[in-house]
Design a binder for these strands. Structure first.
Length: 315
DNA sequence: AAGACGAAAGTGGTTGA
DNA sequence: TCAACAACTTTCGTCTT
C-alpha cells in the first residue's frame, strides 16, 4: 500500500533538466495513469504517449490484486459513460478476420443498434457525450492538462444532474465548466482565451460561469495575478529571475491592497513589466499588454500604482 | 520613428435603492 | 428596473529616447 503511493505520479527521473516550453519552468511531472508529462505551473501537456515503466506487481491476495492489477483502460470522467462500457465493433468480421454470413451480419446490425441505444439511453446522456467531446476539443486547443479536463467534466456532470442546462447552449456551459476547472486548479486561462476557441462569446461564457458558480455552490477565490505570471513571462521569453521578481512584487502589492478590485491580468502584466525593466530585460508596454490581453493604458496605470506604493524606482 | 505618457470620452458589468 | 459607479478601453495628442 505504501509503496504504491509513489508509483503513479511525481516521478521526476530524467525530467530535471527539461523545461516547459510554455513557461520555461522546470516543474514537469509525470503522470503514468494518464500517460502524460505535464507542467505543474501552467498545466501544459508537454508530452503524451508515455510508456508506463512501472513494475508488474505480483499479487498475493485478492486485495492486492485489486490494487496492483493493470488491465483495461483507466476510468475517466471525460467520456460520457466513464469509459467503462462495452462497445460492439463495427466491422463485419469475426475474431479470425473472416467475413460474417448475411444472416449473422443483420443480427450484428441489430445488436449494434441496441448497444448504441443502451449506451446513450436518455437525452441527458446524449447531452453529456456531446458536451464532453466539446470540453475535450477546447482543452486540446488550449493544450490543457488531462486533470483540467477531468475536473471540467465533473463540473459538467453536476450541472446536468442538477438540471441546470435548460436554455443554455451546451457549448457555453462546457466552456464555463472548463473555465471553472482552470481556476480551481490554479492554471487560469482568461475568458478571452477560452472564447477564442469557441463559438460562444466571452460575455456568454462569463454569464453561465457565474450561474454555475452560484447554483453549484462552487466557491472560487478571486484569481491571483501570480497565477498568470509563468504563462505571460514565457510568452514574452522572460528569464526565470524576472518571473521570480514579478511574483515578489505581486505578493507585496497584494499585501498593500493594490490588487483588490483590479483585474488580475492587468496587475500581473504591470508587475512583469516593472520586473523586466529592473532586470534589463525591457519589453515594451505594448508587448506586455498584448500577452495579458489588456491595453497599454491599463498596464501603465497598474505599474504606476505599483512603483509608487512599493517605493520602487526604475533606473 | 517608436515607445512612453496622460487626458478625456466611451463601454460593459456590478451594485444598491 | 434604473441610475450611479469603478475598472477598463479607445482614441488621440504630446513628450522622450
Amino acid at each position: 500500500m505504501e509503496e504504491l503511493e509513489n508509483v503513479g505520479v511525481d516521478d521526476l527521473d530524467g525530467l530535471e533538466d527539461r523545461k516547459c516550453p510554455e513557461c520555461g519552468c522546470t516543474r514537469l511531472v509525470r503522470d503514468y495513469d494518464r500517460a502524460e508529462v505535464i507542467c505543474a505551473s501552467c498545466g501544459l501537456v508537454v508530452d503524451d504517449h508515455l510508456i508506463d515503466p512501472g513494475p508488474e506487481w505480483r499479487a498475493f491476495d485478492s486485495e492486492q490484486r485489486e490494487q496492483r492489477q493493470r488491465g483495461g483502460a483507466p476510468m475517466t470522467y471525460t467520456i460520457h459513460d466513464k469509459g467503462l462500457s462495452t462497445v460492439i465493433d463495427w466491422r463485419d468480421k469475426d475474431i479470425y478476420g473472416t467475413s460474417l454470413k448475411p444472416s449473422r451480419r443483420s443480427q450484428m446490425y441489430r445488436l449494434r443498434k441496441w448497444n448504441r441505444r443502451a449506451r446513450m439511453s436518455d437525452s441527458s446522456d446524449r447531452n453529456l457525450s456531446f458536451a464532453l467531446a466539446e470540453i475535450d476539443r477546447i482543452a486540446a486547443q488550449l493544450r490543457l492538462a488531462r486533470n483540467v479536463k477531468e475536473a471540467a467534466s465533473m463540473v459538467y456532470r453536476r450541472t446536468v444532474e442538477k438540471k441546470l442546462i435548460r436554455g443554455r447552449s451546451i457549448e457555453s456551459v462546457a466552456a464555463s465548466a472548463l473555465y471553472v476547472a482552470c481556476r480551481q486548479l490554479s492554471v487560469p486561462r482568461t475568458l478571452e482565451e477560452i472564447a477564442s476557441v469557441t463559438k460562444v462569446d466571452k460575455k456568454e461564457i462569463g454569464r453561465s460561469y457565474r450561474f454555475l458558480a452560484r447554483e453549484l455552490g462552487i466557491k472560487l477565490a478571486p484569481t491571483s495575478p501570480i497565477d498568470y505570471v509563468p504563462r505571460f513571462a514565457s510568452a514574452l521569453k522572460l528569464p526565470g529571475k524576472v518571473q521570480a521578481m514579478a511574483i515578489e512584487i505581486l505578493s507585496q502589492a497584494i499585501d498593500e491592497g493594490l490588487t483588490s478590485g483590479r483585474g488580475p491580468m492587468g496587475v500581473a502584466a504591470a508587475a512583469l513589466y516593472v520586473s523586466a525593466v529592473m532586470n534589463d530585460e525591457q519589453r515594451t508596454q505594448r508587448e506586455v499588454a498584448e500577452v495579458a490581453r489588456v491595453t497599454e493604458v491599463t498596464v501603465r496605470n497598474r505599474y504606476k500604482e505599483i512603483i509608487e506604493h512599493l517605493g520602487l524606482a526604475l533606473e
